[in-house]
Design a protein around this nucleic acid. Structure first.
Length: 468
RNA sequence: GGCUGGGUGGCAGAAUGGCCAUGCGACGGACUGCAAAUCCGUUCUACGCGGGUUCGAUUCCCGCCCCAGCCUCCA
């Protein structure tokens, strides 16, 4: 059995065959740091984190590079608006991003190159394009890519250059030879940061940074190039044009694009005023719940944000952690150590994930395994420990289930302190001993109003946070 | 208009040419002082519409309708 990946370039699932299995080279377009990460960013980050984890879990070595765009029009505008230096704004947003991603359980990429730290690489690549006549400089000092010179333009997005020109909503830039041409370099403007280049001072266009940085960090071709679906056109199309013209090499073997986050079935967008930052949501939901939500639909499908769906994710995670509770799961550092009778679960998860990272199917496997753990819990504690160990290990391949179950299940006491909760539980225990069930039930109702759910067990009462 | 994806039971969300997804919800049973959690069972003729291929299609083919995204900065 082997991994199949949907390749946006060919529009079909293909067997995954990296050039070097010991070093899968993966480049993901990260974010432009002028504001906090929203759920759309979170989805990209979590989806590709899941992909890296899975590739590593099945034995690949992966070099994961994710860039940071820290110079562009929006950043310049926002910094001016705030009356702060560009560097202050971007440093602040990068720190916030790192914090958000760590909270969501995303691994740190192996490299996180910044555009401003890579300008010489970009200048060099633009020079190659000029030398080969794939680019031209204008009177005003801009440099454009000559799309008409590149025959493969439109292959990734399925767009036809002729159609694009015909329906060109692109406003006419007098200096462009072709409306499809795009900026590689923008001539310096007063009040804007600028770098030196042989053809004049200025700053890089957006697309060139990914071509230059991916080449510097990983060479060419990449095994995987990823990003949000909206980057297919024009960003990735332009990257292909740049890299292939400059390097005589196909930029990437596999293109992976994730679907959008929607809100009430509309795209989440700042212009619609319906976007949520990761921070907004972390105030209301545990980070691992967000992660479950983000992986609960297939990465290429749209993901609809609703309160109900978030609650569903919370319930799902609670079910999994409840299965792990009060067990000491066996630690399996390697799949090979899983007992024979539990291997089928590992195989089923792999089968799901090997099919283009089918996380919903993977969750189905985890739920069935959780049921198996629960079944064994009473009668066969040792077998339950083993099954729980596998559940935990498989959850780990998705970046989940690594916490102590009781920390998760008792993560939040709402507006009561833990000692108050415990005091009330003790009071109730007293009442129950006296068979004063009216009092006992009143205390239970009182706790329920604070979102605390009780469970009476033979050896005492435990409480947990109730998600409703 | 062009280019991508989609339309599955009360909700979310997979797979699949003929049998079970899975989770949540609802209902019944076991357990419990009652609950909760858990287990067992049931629920809902689920597959956008109309044709075709087939012994048999939600699944393949054709046409249509509808939705979302991209075509302009966007994860």
């Amino acid at each position: 059995m082997s991994l199949y990946v949907y390749n946006s370039l060919t529009r079909q699932k293909e067997p995954f065959e990296p050039a070097d299995p010991a070093n899968v080279r993966m480049y993901v377009c990260g974010m432009t740091v002028y504001d906090y990460c929203h759920m759309g960013h979170a989805r990209v980050m979590v989806v590709f984190d899941m992909i890296v984890r899975y590739l590593r879990a099945i034995g690949y070595g992966v070099t994961y590079v994710r860039n940071i765009t820290d110079i562009d029009d929006k950043i310049i505008a926002r910094a001016a608006e705030n009356g702060e230096p560009i560097g202050d704004l971007t440093e602040r947003m990068i720190a916030a991003m790192h914090e958000d991603l760590a909270t969501l359980g995303c691994l740190t990429p192996d490299a996180e190159p910044r555009a401003t730290g890579s300008v010489p690489d970009m200048v060099e690549m633009i020079q190659w394009l000029l030398d080969r006549d794939y680019a031209y400089a204008t009177e005003s000092g801009d440099v454009y890519y000559a799309v008409g010179r590149f025959s493969g333009y439109g292959r990734l997005s399925g767009e036809n250059p002729e159609e694009l020109r015909a329906g060109a909503r692109v406003e006419a830039e007098p200096d462009k030879r072709d409306p499809l041409d795009f900026a590689l370099w923008k001539a310096a403007q007063p009040e804007e940061p600028a770098w030196r280049a042989p053809w004049g001072k200025g700053r890089p266009g957006w697309h060139i940074e990914c071509s230059a940085m991916s080449y510097r960090e990983l060479g060419c071709p990449l095994d995987i190039h990823g990003g949000g679906a909206d980057l297919k056109f024009p960003h990735h199309e332009n990257e292909i044009a740049q890299s292939e013209a400059a390097l005589d090499c196909h930029l990437a073997r596999y293109w992976i694009h994730n679907g959008f986050v929607r809100v009430d079935d509309e795209k989440m967008a700042k212009s619609l005023g319906n976007f949520f930052t990761i921070r907004d949501l972390l105030a209301a939901y545990d980070a691992e719940i967000l992660r479950v939500f983000l992986l609960s639909s297939h990465y290429r499908s749209p993901l609809n944000y609703t309160e109900e769906n978030l609650r569903g994710a919370a319930g799902a995670l609670e079910r999994l952690y409840t299965a792990l509770e009060d067990l000491d799961p066996v630690d399996y550092p390697d799949i090979g150590e899983v007992p024979e009778d539990l291997r089928q679960w590992v195989a089923r998860l792999r089968e799901a994930m090997d099919d283009d990272f089918n996380t919903p199917e993977a969750f189905a496997v985890l739920f069935e395994l959780a049921r198996e753990v629960n079944r064994r819990k009473e009668s066969e504690p040792e077998e339950a420990r083993a099954a729980a160990g596998v559940l935990r290990m498989l959850g780990g391949t998705l970046g989940l289930l690594q916490r102590d179950p009781s920390t998760f299940l008792r993560r939040d006491t709402g507006d009561l302190s833990v000692s108050e909760v415990e005091r009330l539980i003790a009071e109730r225990a007293e009442a129950r001993r006296a068979r004063d069930f009216a009092t006992a039930d009143r205390i239970r109702d009182q706790l329920a109003e604070h979102g605390i759910e009780l469970e009476d067990r033979p050896d005492g009462t435990v409480w947990r946070k109730q998600t409703k």
